[in-house]
Design a protein around this nucleic acid. Sequence first.
DNA 1: CATTGTTATATTCGCCTCGAGTATAATAAA
DNA 2: TTTATTATACTCGAGGCGAATATAACAATG
Lengths: 307, 307
Amino acid sequence: MDNANDITADLIAVVVAVNGHEPRVLTIGRANVLPSGPFELGHRSLQSGLRSWVEEQTGQPLGYIEQLYTFADRDRVGTGQRVISISYLALTREEEATQSARRRWQRWYDYFPWEDHRSGAPSMLARVLRPRLLKWADSAGDNETRRERRQRAAVAFGFDERQWNEELTLQRYELLYEAAMVGEAAGGQPSAALSSAAGESMIADHRRILATGIARLRSKIKYRPVVFELMPPVFSLLQLQRTVEALAGRLLHKPNFRRLVEQQELVEQTGETTADTGGRPAKLYRFRHGVLDERAIAGAKLPLTRA
Amino acid sequence: MDNANDITADLIAVVVAVNGHEPRVLTIGRANVLPSGPFELGHRSLQSGLRSWVEEQTGQPLGYIEQLYTFADRDRVGTGQRVISISYLALTREEEATQSARRRWQRWYDYFPWEDHRSGAPSMLARVLRPRLLKWADSAGDNETRRERRQRAAVAFGFDERQWNEELTLQRYELLYEAAMVGEAAGGQPSAALSSAAGESMIADHRRILATGIARLRSKIKYRPVVFELMPPVFSLLQLQRTVEALAGRLLHKPNFRRLVEQQELVEQTGETTADTGGRPAKLYRFRHGVLDERAIAGAKLPLTRA
DNA sequence: CATTGTTATATTCGCCTCGAGTATAATAAA
DNA sequence: TTTATTATACTCGAGGCGAATATAACAATG
């Protein structure tokens, strides 16, 4: 029986919160490791196993959880043992800003500097990434592969008049990995010229899992009211908009955003206002939890624009 | 070391094909079992493990595959061993109609008779399922639970003037399970009055997995060109439409369907026509595989209508 | 060979969504 | 009081899409 049984199942969490205008991910240790641990007999379910590992490693209790993806790692050399990794996305509020030795909230965009387009496309995209990707494409053996690589890069990164698509986070990371432009790739550390543009590395394939979580979240906020998991109980519409923008990595059209949120009846007024915003006091709202029952698909599409 | 290690990972496949106007799922044995088998050391990856199990058990080679969901079964009594199940959706063409002892193509709607709305809402919905569900709702202890159960049933099944939403296949099955209205539920076999409306049962939670696959596919055909995995290399637009309708369980508006497919440039004409259709000969088309590279999201929304 | 039925294909209409722009209101600071 | 800043409200217009209708090309029938 040393065959099918030699398996360990690891649970890995991408825990997201938005602090101010920055989306963050929960890490442990020296900041490049996602919370994770093996699924054990004591765990009632995969989800509860994940919860207890995250809480044990970071002290952070989790609310909303959804499964991301399951994959089998390549053999752990020598041992002849295989590891199955089951990754989850968790949304929470970053209660205290207190960083500790064991838990650390890291900015998304430190790992993916090319993903934040809120102040326009980062200049390093055209300046650093594009030429390197083209060079990689042209280094291919045959003509067909060259053409295909150029096209993949153009689609993923929005080169050549194409539109930037914020949901392609995973494809972009995989492309950079394939081109050995990120630290995790076979070629080892990226060159000095690239290093700042390549973003921070993580151990094993944790950055890939993070990319999967970002992509899932960016897609999901458009048709399910999950943003509210990241909001405080009471908020202004602009706060809500800024949170969505932080996640999507792009700016939204304010009047249209308001129209959408209001006519979908996702929120209700508390009756109070806040003057913390600098200008005219903003009305405060809370999430209408009823929508979760009333509608199966509360389509909350984003009104995207170049702003 | 008898703790984290006592785990088996099972791979389970929902293999779908559309024959004529009927979507089917590949089963083995006495027709109520999905192809499955343990993930083993010899498998290069989860996907390749799945492929070899399906091929070994049914002789069916697989093309398109995507992961559905991973879950941990409740303890297998006594053994103290846990099983993790990783389920996949596979799309293929039902090459030969030859059923054999080991493989059998079963109609979706034998398992989910309430899911086929192509000739209007099945009468058993209002006649059998609705009263039973209401009875179950009213059997709850407190008022709040009763209200919530009624609402869940109404949303999932489109009662009380609500719209039928074909993507809620999983929620509907779970609701029926909770109400002990399907054979797999705790109460054992459903009553005779219910049995035909409850659909065929499957072993363990295979029917739940099938429901997950149906829901996923019904959702995905709307924004990714996956239907073509189920089509022969050359087809008419009406054939394509009938296939989509079979999957969605509802009829589409013909002119709008054509407009959508054509203006998205998903297909190209072969130049030939077929007279097999009875009336005016139909032009034949093939899938433009180029779209998979050109676009990241080939939004193929369905123009839905009551027809 | 004209009639009829059936399917394929083309065109049009109109509502509603949503991107985009502009106008007005209410506060703080200068 | 002026100006800056933010909040809130309204309007316009293109495009997507549901819906209906019109025309074309075949087979079958008498």
